[in-house]
């Protein structure tokens, strides 16, 4: 037990040390404290904000945009992925198009989103959905293509119907890939939610950061950036947990597919 607790304590010590370093650097005058306020000041601003409504509504708005975007992207990617992946001809015919569309950077759509929707949540959603969709689609396609040929032959020889094959063969094989895709898509979606709030519009943490930095409230800007980081960590932990739960039965937890 003592051995397994050690990394945890070291990790806590690392975080405390990092905070202390950022406290000392401005206090000793290495960096101007107008640009890098000491940790204590950032944390006290954060504590102040935590007691008030606006921070929580900003967090709520960011989470809402993120969740809607992720849900749309995942639903579209799973449906298309299963259809394309299980029909050989479709897989072959769409491969080159997918390879071409996937690397198009989602931010290329920022001007288009502004023109089409204006500075509102829908514009942000456009780039969130676009970015998360490809992460998910590629994983689902790999998963569906990974169905064991022997298992497939077995299913055919027992005359399982199309629906039964999807339920008992395709779905369990593709699930590990899909769950990994979900985690990757969630990470990307969060990045683009904040990006969209900063550069397109819609309420949320990105908008608050923009307002704070434009108003010269440097400690508040730091505090808000810290909140986006904590949100990212929470999302990452949540989806790792989902991954572990969903794959607990699986003999070999699969990693990311190399593109």
């Amino acid at each position: 037990m003592a051995l397994s607790l050690r990394p945890l304590w070291l990790g806590v010590a690392g975080l405390v040390g990092f905070g202390a370093l950022l406290e000392l650097v401005p206090r000793l005058g290495v960096v101007d404290d107008r640009f890098l306020p000491p940790t204590s000041r950032i944390l006290s601003v954060l504590a102040e904000q935590a007691g008030a409504g606006p921070l929580w509504s900003a967090v709520g708005n960011t989470v809402l945009t993120w969740a809607i975007g992720l849900a749309l992207a995942v639903a579209a990617a799973v449906v298309l992925g299963v259809v394309i992946g299980s029909v050989r001809f479709l897989r072959a015919a769409t491969a080159s198009t997918i390879e071409f569309l996937r690397p198009i950077p989602s931010v290329a759509w920022i001007p288009a989103a502004l023109v089409l929707y204006g500075p509102v949540r829908a514009g942000t959603l456009l780039i969130v959905v676009y970015a998360a969709f490809w992460q998910m689609l590629v994983q689902v396609l790999h998963g569906v293509a990974d169905v064991d040929p022997v298992a497939r032959d077995t299913a055919y020889s027992y005359r399982l119907g199309r629906w039964a094959r999807v339920r008992w063969l395709t779905w369990p094989t593709a699930l590990p890939y899909a769950v990994t895709g979900l985690r990757l898509a969630a990470t990307v979606a969060l990045i683009l939610t904040v990006t969209g709030e900063l550069f397109i519009g819609g309420p949320g943490l990105g908008a608050e950061i923009l307002r704070a930095s434009a108003g010269g409230a440097v400690p508040l800007t730091y505090a808000l950036v810290l909140v986006t980081g904590l949100l990212g960590v929470a999302a990452n932990l949540l989806f790792r947990l989902v991954e572990r739960r969903a794959l607990a039965w699986h003999p070999a937890v699969r990693g990311e597919v190399p593109a």
Partner: peptide, 24 residues
């Protein structure tokens, strides 16, 4: 063990959010 949580936190910050800070 010491640095992993710090790095995970720094990584989790959406990079565009840092733009106003880097501007300082």
């Amino acid at each position: 063990a010491l640095l992993e949580p710090v790095l995970e936190l720094l990584r989790a910050i959406p990079p565009p959010a840092l733009i106003p800070l880097i501007g300082l």
